[in-house]
Amino acid sequence: MDITKRFHRIIAIYFQLQGRSIVKAQDLAQRFDVSVRTIYRDIRALEQAGIPIYGEAGTGYSLTEGYKLPPTSFTKDEILSIAASEKLMQKFVDPDLFRHFSTAIDKVRSYLRYSDKNNIMHLEDNLVMQRSSAMFNEAVPDALSVLFESISLQKIAELTYQAIHRNEPNERRIEAVGIFHEGHFWYFIAYCHLREDYRQFRIDRIQKIKRTDDPFTRKHKPLHYYLDKKAPAPTTKVRVRVNKDFARYLQWDRIYYGFVSEEITTDHVEMTFQSKNVENEFARWYLMFADQATILEPEELKDHVRSILTAIQL
Rank of each mutant, 00 (worst) to 15 (best):
Y256G: 10
T236N: 10
I295Y: 04
W285F: 10
K229P: 02
Y257C: 01
E262M: 06
A290I: 05
C192V: 07
A190Y: 03
V260L: 11
Q200P: 09
Y257P: 00
D204T: 03
R254M: 14
F289G: 02
L296E: 06
Y286L: 06
K244Q: 08
R195T: 09
N277C: 08
H268F: 13
V278M: 04
R218C: 15
L301C: 04
Y226I: 02
V242C: 04
Q200K: 13
V269I: 12
V278S: 10
F246K: 07
R202H: 05
A290F: 07
P232Q: 05
D197A: 14
P298K: 01
E299W: 13
Y191D: 03
V278L: 09
N243Y: 05
W186E: 03
E300K: 11
E281M: 13
A247D: 01
N243G: 11
K229D: 15
T266H: 14
S261Y: 00
P222D: 03
H193C: 07
Y187P: 02
D291H: 07
D228S: 15
R195K: 09
Y198A: 06
F273Q: 03
K244R: 10
T294N: 12
T272L: 10
K230E: 09
R202N: 11
R254F: 04
G258V: 00
R239C: 13
R205T: 01
I189P: 00
K208C: 05
P222A: 01
I264R: 15
F282N: 03
T217E: 05
T217W: 05
D267L: 09
S261C: 08
H224N: 13
I189G: 03
V269E: 09
K229G: 05
Q292E: 14
I209C: 02
N277V: 01
V269F: 00
S261E: 08
V242H: 00
W252F: 14
W285P: 09
D245K: 10
E300Y: 02
R284K: 07
F185L: 14
R202P: 10
I189Y: 08
T235A: 07
E299M: 11
E270T: 11
T212M: 11
K208A: 15
H193P: 03
I206D: 04
R239G: 02
D228Y: 14
Y256V: 02
L296H: 04
Y249W: 11
D214E: 15
D204A: 13
Q200V: 13
K221L: 15
V242Y: 00
E299F: 12
V260H: 01
P222F: 04
D291N: 05
F201R: 01
A231K: 11
I203K: 04
Q292W: 10
L223N: 02
M288K: 12
T265K: 09
E279H: 02
F201M: 03
R284A: 12
I203D: 08
Q251F: 12
D267A: 13
D291Y: 09
Y286T: 08
A231Q: 13
R205N: 10
Y191H: 08
N280Y: 12
R202M: 15
E300R: 08
I203F: 06
P222V: 00
I209Q: 00
F201T: 01
A231T: 14
K219T: 13
T272G: 00
Q292G: 09
Q207V: 13
D253A: 14
R239I: 13
D204M: 08
R202Y: 01
Y198C: 01
F188T: 06
K302Y: 03
F273C: 06
K237R: 03
R211S: 10
H193R: 06
I203S: 07
E279M: 06
R254W: 04
